[in-house]
Design a protein around this nucleic acid. Structure first.
Lengths: 230, 230
DNA sequence: CAAAAACAAGAGCACTGCTCTCGCAATGTG
DNA sequence: CACATTGCGAGAGCAGTGCTCTTGTTTTTG
């Protein structure tokens, strides 16, 4: 085995081990030394592959974003009737929720408190954008379909219009401001719900997380005009 | 100064110093030894007052919940026309958002990733309940007023009704299930928005956080039937 | 006033991330 | 092919962490 091959191999082994540790003990308790022991190396040797603990964290963050992005895109693509935006929206929401419940520590790494002293490098941006991208894609398609919003929606003033300027470059086809606000609300709600649930704030309040999440996302779909309330 | 007085004094000094450190370096980087140095003690002496780092964290969590609870209740009480539920709702939302922006590390401690290996004791529950309580109180008042919801709202099935059983004991007067779902959505949205904003997920997407937050909470108020969309 | 409890200080243990040096082995080049 | 270069693993070491235990002192209590 050539030296270069060996290097990628060992790098992968370290990252896989780190990922296992992450899933077990969470991001803050991730120990580079413990990972090295598990791999069968001395701790200083790991630094040949990851310059610092933060770089290892970055790799794990990108990996997690990609995995979540895969899950979301797969869920969206799995809906056969592409015009059924409600179904696609619900599939995306469920994918996020399911992935988060299956990988709570990874979810916390992505959407929980930022690791102190750690600034996410630009590497993570495109990976992170995939999840948000799924929402934005659906928003654009809904706009193209000319769907009416399912609930009375406030007009967007000039201040808010300017505030939304940052998201427009990410769009290929335009989305009306009021519709965009609704989609951003849905985005906040889905992640807010998931975080509150996973971080224990619904404890003893909501007795069936899945049922409640389904009710909430169903309501969001209605507000977005993707379904009608009977 | 008597020994008992001295004890509460020192306990408070330690906690205040810890609070300062928390605001500067964040919860994960909180060092008991650094706090001890700052207070002018040796680290082992701190253990006379807080049996472990987690107990100190618990004290900080309760303090933060109380502070946020104070801010929220003060905001609610500050609205003169008590029947103007929209104004009160917006005041509560703004209080949360403002406090979070002013105390990002404290917010992360409360609503970010749980500290690993740390299980919040029951002491924190009543303090945490004050914030949620503000939402629930408004929900009950809105129900008593007989307000119509501002947007078509899906019926609540038996599964979701059961899921909501956990929140009912916290109510003094009943709230219809569909209205409760809308208020829980608002709760998730407010904290979801705040977390996404503070944890950097709106970076370069939303250019004016305050404007966007106002637009979102305004929309929530409308959906809750507290205001009418013109 | 003596016994008991509370306390501050220090040493020490088992960790952590990270740096540096030292040999060894694989690789590239004259 | 021989030699210099480079990559790499191991180890020692530094400064820091949470936490425990012992020692001597001070305060409170019986």
């Amino acid at each position: 085995m050539s030296r270069a091959e060996n290097r990628v191999e060992i790098t992968r082994t370290i990252q896989e081990t780190a990922r296992r540790h992450l899933a077990e003990v969470g991001p803050a308790a991730l120990s580079l030394r413990a990972i090295a022991r598990d791999v069968g190396m001395v701790s200083s040797a790991v630094y040949r592959y990851f310059p610092s603990r933060d770089d290892l964290l970055t790799a794990l963050i990108v990996e997690a974003y990609d995995e979540l992005g895969d899950a979301v895109e797969r869920a969206d693509a799995g809906v056969r009737r592409r015009t059924d935006l409600a179904k696609r929206f619900l599939a995306v929401c469920d994918a996020i929720h399911d992935w988060a419940r299956a990988n709570p520590h990874e979810y916390a790494l992505l959407y929980g408190s930022p690791v102190p002293g750690y600034a996410a490098p630009d590497t993570t941006v495109p990976a992170a954008a995939r999840v948000t991208g799924a929402f934005l894609r659906l928003a654009q398609e809904s706009e193209r379909e000319g769907d009416d919003l399912g609930a009375p929606t406030r007009a967007v003033g000039s201040t808010e219009r300017k505030a939304l300027d940052g998201v427009r470059p990410a769009l290929e086809s335009p989305v009306a401001d009021d519709r965009m606000v609704r989609w951003l609300i849905a985005w906040s709600t889905v992640f807010g719900h998931t975080s509150l649930e996973l971080f224990g704030h619904m404890h003893r309040g909501i007795l069936d997380y899945d049922a409640h999440f389904a009710q909430v996302t169903g309501q969001l779909a209605a507000d977005l005009g993707l379904t009608r309330v009977p």
